[in-house]
Computed example of a mutant assay.
Amino acid sequence: MEQHQNPWRFESASVPYENPWIRVTERRGMNPSGNPGLYGIVHFKNLAIGVVAMDEEQHIWLVGQYRVPLEAWSWEICEGGGPLRGDPLESAIRELLEETGLRAGSWRPIVRMHLSNSVSDEAGIVYLAQDLEQGEAEPEETEQLIVKRVPFPEAYRMVRDFEITDSLSVAAIQKIRLMMLEGEL
């Protein structure tokens, strides 16, 4: 069998749940071994957007908030969502302003990733935002945020010590570290 071919043979699909952010699809058919199989997929209706805001002193902004699915507090880079067919940079600009009040003069994509490809199709992109100017934050009514500016080595230590566990944040902070080691920053 060709390595790139889907080994599943699906016969039916249903949508047991949907809301404005996700759709859950249940697919039935034959698994790769030829036995009856069931596969649940969470389809995300938005692209995950992340922003590492870094100033000239190599400090970054972290956003802290309570994450209901985890039932825990989480420190993260600036994050949000944007339309799948929209310009992700526009969404990143909006999220940075909403959560931190920052505007950036320089933007570049540093990470593109699938976030949990065994059960979802969620994809994300992270930008490095530089040449920052401080303004007023405009958080959404669903967000109760604490924003802090930290030296990059502190953020990296927080990833290393499992104080930051959000996947986009971990990937982005690791990528920034790699860029520093390779002389790209």
Rank of each mutant, 00 (worst) to 15 (best):
S91T: 07
S91M: 05
E95K: 15
I77L: 05
G82L: 06
L70D: 08
L102D: 12
R108L: 14
D87A: 07
R85N: 08
E76C: 06
R94C: 03
L70Y: 02
G86N: 08
A72F: 00
W73Y: 12
E71W: 02
W73D: 15
W75H: 00
S106V: 10
D87R: 07
T100C: 15
E76N: 07
S91A: 15
L96Q: 12
E98R: 11
I93A: 06
L96W: 09
L97I: 10
R108C: 10
L84C: 11
A72R: 02
R103H: 12
G86Q: 09
W75Q: 00
G80E: 03
E90N: 10
E95Q: 12
T100I: 15
W107S: 12
W73F: 09
E95P: 02
R103Y: 07
E90Q: 12
I93R: 15
A104L: 14
G81T: 11
P88G: 05
E79H: 04
D87E: 11
E90P: 04
P83Q: 08
E79G: 05
A72N: 08
R85M: 05
P88E: 02
R85V: 04
L84F: 10
R94E: 02
W73K: 13
L84A: 12
L89W: 04
G82C: 08
R108D: 15
P88Y: 01
G81H: 11
W107F: 11
E95M: 13
A104G: 11
I77Y: 01
S91W: 03
D87M: 03
R108T: 14
G101W: 11
C78L: 03
G86W: 06
E79C: 06
G105L: 02
R108I: 12
L96T: 15
A104T: 13
R94L: 08
G81F: 08
G105T: 05
W107N: 11
R108W: 07
A104N: 13
I93N: 03
A92C: 05
L102M: 15
G86K: 10
E90V: 09
G101V: 11
E99F: 09
E95H: 12
